[in-house]
């Protein structure tokens, strides 16, 4: 009886330790944020349609800032294109925001590497300033309540299993 109690205690402790470790395991370069409310984000996309983050409550949003002159952004963009068809926009929406470039510049780049992405245009760069990313590119994960939950440092290979599983895991919460 005594040894059975110790076994139960050991198993319980093992389960607690392993499950808590798994809960905080994030892909490389993903930071957990403090859950403060996301700054306002209202922009027009390249087709002229208005998009407002506050209307995306109830599902996750990946808010991504980039520019064509930034090398890591150029490398990362095809990986965002690759995951786009694998995500249900009702669970995980992508808001791809170009920082302060012209439509011609953005169109000529995206047409070649990410034709399905319709970016939001931060034409004067002021929305990006308000979000204060740590640099370009930057990807924030906004939860269904409109709070900042995770930040990806720099460019990440979103189409590889650790990152894709992370995104799908959030979407299916």
């Amino acid at each position: 009886m005594h040894s059975q109690s110790i076994l139960a205690l050991t198993l319980g402790l093992a389960w607690l330790l392993l499950s808590s470790a798994a809960a905080v395991t994030l892909p490389k370069g993903i930071l957990k944020l403090d859950g403060r409310p996301a700054p306002p984000l209202v922009l027009q996309n390249m087709d002229g349609e208005r998009w407002d983050l506050s209307e995306s409550r109830g599902h996750w949003v990946l808010v991504h800032f980039w520019a064509t002159w930034c090398g890591p952004c150029r490398k990362e963009m095809p990986t965002l294109q690759a995951i786009l068809p694998q995500l249900d926009p009702k669970k995980m929406e992508l808001a791809i925001i170009n920082t302060a470039e012209s439509e011609d510049t953005v169109f000529s780049f995206l047409a070649a590497v990410a034709p399905d992405i319709v970016p939001l245009m931060d034409t004067d760069g002021q929305v990006t300033e308000r979000w204060q990313p740590r640099g370009l590119p930057a990807s924030f994960f906004v939860d269904p309540d409109g709070r900042l939950r995770y930040l990806a440092l720099g460019g990440r290979p979103w189409d590889t299993p650790p990152y894709l599983n992370f995104i799908k895991g959030l979407a299916n919460q």
Partner: peptide, 11 residues
């Protein structure tokens, strides 16, 4: 223009 000032800041 502001947009170019923003771009400069990010560089």
């Amino acid at each position: 223009p502001l947009a170019h000032q923003a771009t400069f800041g990010w560089t």
